[in-house]
Structures are given as C-alpha cells and as structure tokens.
C-alpha cells in the first residue's frame, strides 16, 4: 500500500497522544506527580496537541475535507466512523480532567471521574484505529489478530516515554514512569516482532489464477495492462517495498523505537534531574523517528489483493 504521510502522521501522533492521555489519567488518579497548573498545561497540551494535530492531518488525506463531519454518521458499521466518534467523545472527559488539573489544580470528584472515563475512551479510539486496518479482508498483512494489539502497545509505549519526560520535568515518579516505559517498549517490541514473523510466515496463497478464475488453464501472467500509464488503483495499492530494504528498516525500528528509548529512559534513574530530562527527551525523539519508520513499513509491507490483476504473482 502507498504510505501516505498524512495517515502516518495521524496514526503515530494521535496514537502517542492517546497513550499519554491514558497515563496522565492514571497519574492523576494515583498522584504520580503533584497536580499543578504548569504540569497540567504542559501534559495535556502535549497529549491533546498530538491528538488534535493527528486528527487534523488525517483530514488532509480527504478529497473533500469540508465534508469531514459526515464521517461521524456511520458508527454502526464503519470503524473509521467509530474512530471519529470516539476521538471526539474522548475530548469531553479529557478536557474536563485537563481543566481540573491545569486550572482548578484538583484531581478529585468529578475530575477523578473524568479521568476514569478518559482511559477506556482513549483506548477504544486507538483500538478502532487499529480495526480500520485489521477489518480489511483485502490486505492479508493487516487482516490478523496482532494488528490491534500492536497499535495499542505502540500508543501506550510512546505515551509512556512521553510520560517519563513529563514526570522528569515536574518532579514526579519518573523512575516509575521509566519502568513503565521500559516494560511497554518491551511489550510493543515483542508484539511487533510477532507481527512481522506472522506476515513473513503466512503463505501468500492467492494468485493471479484465483483473481481471474483462469486457474483451470494454468499459470496466469499479465500480457497487457489495461492502460499504459499507472492508474489510481496501481498508484494507491501497487506500492511495494523491496524485501531487503524492508529488513533494514525493521532493524531501524527496533533500534530507534525500542532499544534506544528503552536504554535512555533508564538514564533517569539516580541521575541529576537535567540528565533525566535530557535522556527522556532524546528517548522521545528517537521513539518518534522509530515510530514513523514502523508506520511507513506498516503500509509499505502491506500487499493489496488487487495487485494480482496487475502482475503480482501472489498475495
């Protein structure tokens, strides 16, 4: 599949945003850090900022952005619609919690309740993002049980790395944050590794013969494309990344999205506060880079079954 930058940005940024949101909710519930206006503005600014930026960039992908509001109508059937609805819904409790923290400097009562509500909504939003892809029978690499868990894990891991930075900045339990980030990164790494193993191992048993129904005649090869220049379907679904190129990029993902951040977050232990902040910041940047590559690969490694009509041997 063609990796569209708007979509990559959307899924990664808002993913991290929702992850951070979940952690902030827990932080507020369990007082991992003093509830102060400064930390409130920074934390929620960051989380909601990432989410909003992501959502906005996703509309750049639309042919008719001005009609985007229509996308809330089909939540009964469409995961994309559900994602939209949940994303917006999440703003309500998240916003309330944010006000409590940043303005009222209060995390009890109604604010505690909103924190409690934010967690499932944020997680549900990330799940529906994953489901948009996981629900497509046309793309074997996505249509599998690990797609959603990977999305969740990445959202929480990237959120946790940001949380560590946040705690380091506002003298919170950064050690706890670091442990959390470390564990989440490990889980995400493990899930992604399983995901890749699965898509490598799963046989591509659909061929041009199945696509055309001409299998009864033997091997089916393209003689002539319908048109000489590539059409929309070929441009959108025809994108493929070379195997060995992909393997290099996977290593980059392990390095920048897991290894480097995992080591760096450990840097916050017993270190001078400024080192902790620096380490966590670097971890976040590395995570962002790794995440971007991971998401790019998520698309580039996905093969659409329609490619069988355009010369792919199997899908």
């Amino acid at each position: 599949m063609h990796p569209a930058y708007s979509v990559i940005l959307f899924t990664t940024a808002s993913g991290a945003g929702y992850g951070l949101l979940v952690w902030l909710a827990l932080a507020s519930l369990f007082d991992w850090t003093p509830i102060k206006s400064a930390s409130g503005f920074t934390g929620f600014g960051l989380a909601l900022g990432l989410i909003t930026a992501g959502l906005l960039s996703s509309t750049a992908h639309l042919g008719r952005p001005e009609r985007a509001w229509r996308a809330f109508s089909q939540w009964r059937t469409s995961w994309l619609s559900r994602e939209g609805v949940l994303a917006v819904a999440t703003y309500v409790p998240a916003g309330l919690m944010a006000c409590g923290w940043a303005i009222a400097e209060d995390n009890t009562g109604i604010y505690a309740l909103s924190a409690l509500l934010t967690i499932p909504l944020a997680l549900a939003t990330v799940v529906s993002t994953g489901m948009i892809y996981a629900s497509l029978p046309t793309i074997r690499q996505w249509h599998q049980p690990l797609t959603v868990p990977v999305y969740l894990a990445f959202s929480l891991a990237s959120g946790a790395v940001l949380l560590t930075l946040f705690l380091a900045l506002f003298d919170g339990e950064e050690a706890g944050g670091a442990m959390l980030a470390f564990v989440m990164l490990a889980v995400a790494a493990l899930l992604k590794w399983l995901y890749w193993r699965r898509i490598d191992e799963e046989p591509r048993d659909l061929t041009a013969a199945d696509a055309t129904g001409l299998g009864r005649l033997g091997t089916v090869r393209v003689l002539e494309q319908p048109h000489t220049q590539a059409n929309y379907v070929m441009r959108e679904m025809g994108y493929a990344v070379a195997r060995k190129h992909a393997l290099k990029l996977r290593q980059a993902v392990f390095l920048f999205a897991f290894a480097v951040p995992a080591l760096l977050v450990l840097g916050v232990f017993e270190a001078a506060p400024w080192i902790g902040v620096a380490a966590a910041s670097l971890a976040s940047l590395s995570m962002a880079l790794g995440l971007f590559v991971e998401r790019w690969l998520f698309f580039a490694e996905a093969q659409h079954v329609v490619t069988l009509y355009y010369g792919a041997e199997a899908a």
């Binding site: 639309l62 042919g63 008719r64 952005p65 996308a71 994309l80 497509l136 929309y232």
Partner: peptide, 14 residues
C-alpha cells in the same frame, strides 16, 4: 463522499 478512499482499499477487485 468525503474522498477518504477507504472503500477502494476494501475492494478486492480494483
């Protein structure tokens, strides 16, 4: 239609 293209992703037949 908002041109999100998701339907084209969901069509196996291009």
């Amino acid at each position: 239609c908002i041109g999100c293209k998701l339907c084209s992703w969901a069509c196996p037949y291009g």
